[in-house]
Computed example of a mutant assay.
Amino acid sequence: MDEKLDRYCLLYENGVIDNPFPHVLILSDQRYAIDGNYPFKVFQSESFTEFMSSLRSEPAPSRSSEGGVRIVVK
């Protein structure tokens, strides 16, 4: 994982991706020890739904009657 994050650092330092540099989201059952100080934020979560739930105190998005996912933005 350190090698992958180092490649993101190179993209940042070389200006390949314009500012503001996007955050990095690691979706994995495994929790990684992120030791470096990166010029961007690194988030870790087991799933995207869990990540979204961690951003707000509301429950996770619910399934709509059509089978899709409904996300309420306030």
Rank of each mutant, 00 (worst) to 15 (best):
M1T: 10
M1R: 01
M1K: 00
D2N: 12
D2V: 14
D2C: 06
D2A: 13
E3D: 14
E3K: 14
K4V: 02
L5D: 01
L5P: 02
L5M: 04
L5F: 01
D6C: 00
D6N: 05
R7F: 05
R7I: 05
R7V: 04
Y8I: 08
Y8R: 09
Y8P: 05
Y8E: 12
Y8H: 11
C9A: 09
L10P: 03
L11Q: 12
E13R: 15
N14R: 11
G15C: 01
G15M: 06
V16G: 00
V16K: 08
I17K: 01
D18N: 13
N19F: 08
P20C: 06
P20T: 07
F21T: 10
F21W: 00
F21Q: 02
F21G: 00
P22V: 12
P22N: 08
P22C: 11
H23P: 02
H23T: 14
H23Y: 08
V24M: 02
V24E: 03
V24R: 04
V24W: 03
L25M: 08
I26V: 14
L27S: 09
S28D: 15
S28F: 07
D29K: 06
D29H: 10
D29E: 15
D29R: 05
Y32W: 14
I34P: 02
I34K: 05
D35Y: 04
G36Y: 06
G36C: 06
G36N: 08
N37K: 03
Y38W: 01
P39D: 01
P39Q: 05
F40T: 12
K41Y: 04
V42E: 02
F43Q: 06
S45C: 08
E46C: 12
E46P: 07
E46K: 15
S47A: 13
S47C: 07
F48C: 11
F48P: 09
T49I: 15
T49D: 11
T49Y: 02
E50H: 06
E50I: 12
F51P: 04
F51S: 10
F51Q: 10
F51V: 12
M52H: 10
S53E: 13
S54M: 13
L55I: 12
R56Q: 14
R56G: 15
S57K: 15
S57I: 06
P59C: 05
A60L: 07
A60H: 05
P61M: 01
P61N: 03
P61L: 00
S62N: 11
S62H: 08
R63Y: 02
R63V: 11
R63D: 01
S64F: 00
S65P: 00
E66Q: 12
E66C: 09
G67C: 05
G67I: 05
G68F: 01
G68A: 10
V69F: 04
V69E: 12
R70L: 15
R70Q: 11
I71G: 04
I71N: 07
V72I: 12
V72M: 06
V73K: 09
V73Q: 01
V73S: 01
V73N: 01
K74H: 13
K74S: 10
K74N: 14
K74A: 07
K74R: 14
